[in-house]
Computed example of a mutant assay.
Amino acid sequence: MAQIVITGAGPTGAALALLLVKRGIAVILIEAAKDFHRVFRGEGLMPSGLDALEQMGLSTILERIPHRQLDAWEFIVGGKWLFRVEEPMGADRPCTLVLQPPLLEAMIAQAQAYPGFEFIQGVSVKDLLWINHRVAGVTLGDGREISAELVIGTDGRNSVVRQRAGLQLVRQPKDVDILWFKLAASPRFAANNVFYSILNKDCGFSIFHGAEEGKLHLAWVMSADDRTDWKQTKWAEVFASLSPSWMAEHFRSHAGTIETPIRLSVVVGRCPSWYAPGVLLLGDAAHPMSPVRAQGINVALRDVIVAANHLVPLFHAEAGHEEIDAALSRIQAEREPEIIRAQQLQIEEAAQGEQLRKNALIRWLLIQLAPLVRKRIQQSWLKRQHEMRQGITQVHLTV
């Protein structure tokens, strides 16, 4: 019997599996996909996420895989420059973009050096095993049954483990979807990687150079009432019409490199309970985050540290089921305040952007009064970013 089964080999599952096997706890990590190259994976590591990786001894991995730092954040409204903030905004390290597939491959390769680790890839979890009203393992899509002292669901916002355990996800109202584009990079971004947020008329998008060499990423906000036929739209012209002249020229001259967009359906919410007897949810399985300011991977890595702090001593002591299950509530209690606050900050930032998008008068006043209010707006934005970047609670690896 495995001591712990982890379902989902994203950053949460891979990092937790590695932490546990390095401490002598037997883990089976199960990943439904045959490889890690999904159509979309978040890349943004904030200082809090970078700190979590450092505490786990994984900082050197970043040096070996494609990554790129952000240099600044800049806001342009109605064609007028609003404000700019330089990285690292008072932190000891800047926001860093990292390619997830090589990050996950590197973490799993490290875990495979330990005898207590098994990785099952390309097979989905179909159901949970129950014994006396307690989860006792998983059933795989190929019919295999795997027993475990604890099942940890890190299988994302559409978590099968969450559904099979009967744990409820309370969703926030859905306001937007995102169209995610990639296109050829401009030398201007390569030299100075600025995260631009552009709002013009009632349209908004963000653009920056991702971790992948030579690729810009562009996120186009689609509101609930958007009726755009996005598959037929001439996007190069749309982007150019909303952008500063130098950026417009790049869109037009590289129109042929704009890849077919991915439509990301934004699911945001939080489980009232992250656990049931014998099962724990972490990361997006427990609290799917908004894409605003790239919180998902960062809070998930901090979930991993807190979970390890509580679980490692219990498994070393060969604790019984009651002690293990009692620890699951303590993990949620420790992590939940940060998740609640981070999601609230995301809501505030998204609401501010949506208000600007919908209200032409506010946009006009902001443009006209920009020289007078620029500093105040910048300070308000910075204050909100500090908590989302640095983390809201103290998280320290103690095992």
Rank of each mutant, 00 (worst) to 15 (best):
W246A: 06
D177T: 05
A327R: 04
V123W: 00
R357W: 04
K182Q: 13
F119D: 09
L70F: 06
E212A: 12
V170L: 11
G116M: 00
A300W: 11
A106C: 14
D225W: 07
K34A: 13
A113L: 12
F181T: 07
D303S: 10
V299I: 15
K358G: 03
A52W: 07
L128V: 04
H67A: 12
L18A: 05
E338V: 06
F205A: 06
L97C: 03
A342H: 09
S329A: 15
V304C: 06
I198H: 06
R270I: 14
S273G: 11
V77G: 03
E86Y: 10
S273W: 09
P244A: 08
K215E: 11
L97N: 05
G24K: 08
L104K: 02
A72Y: 02
S273H: 13
T228H: 03
R252M: 10
L62M: 14
L282K: 08
I152C: 02
L167N: 00
P102T: 08
A33S: 15
H310G: 02
V266C: 04
D177K: 05
H133N: 15
V268E: 13
E118Q: 15
N298Q: 09
L104G: 10
I131N: 15
A17T: 08
H209Y: 13
P313A: 02
H37D: 13
R341S: 10
A148M: 09
A17V: 04
I28R: 03
G24P: 06
D177S: 12
R68F: 01
A294P: 03
E54G: 11
D303M: 04
G13D: 07
Q3G: 07
Q69C: 09
P173V: 01
L53V: 11
M46R: 13
I377Q: 10
Y275C: 13
N309S: 02
L169G: 01
P272R: 06
V266M: 01
P66G: 13
R38H: 13
Q368M: 07
W235P: 06
G256V: 01
T7H: 03
I61N: 04
A350H: 04
E145N: 12
K231I: 08
F189S: 02
A148T: 10
A370R: 14
D325P: 10
R384I: 09
P337T: 09
G269V: 05
I392R: 05
V292A: 06
L199S: 11
P261W: 02
A9H: 12
S253E: 15
H287C: 08
F239Y: 14
A2D: 11
Q390S: 02
L18V: 06
V170H: 11
Q172D: 14
D142A: 10
D127C: 01
R23Y: 00
F40V: 09
L18S: 05
N192D: 15
Q295C: 09
G8N: 08
R363F: 03
P101S: 12
M89A: 05
D175S: 06
P11Q: 13
Q343P: 05
V138H: 01
H287P: 07
Q55D: 04
R64D: 15
E336W: 04
I324G: 01
R41N: 11
R335L: 10
H37M: 05
G116C: 04
R157I: 08
F75K: 07
G137K: 07
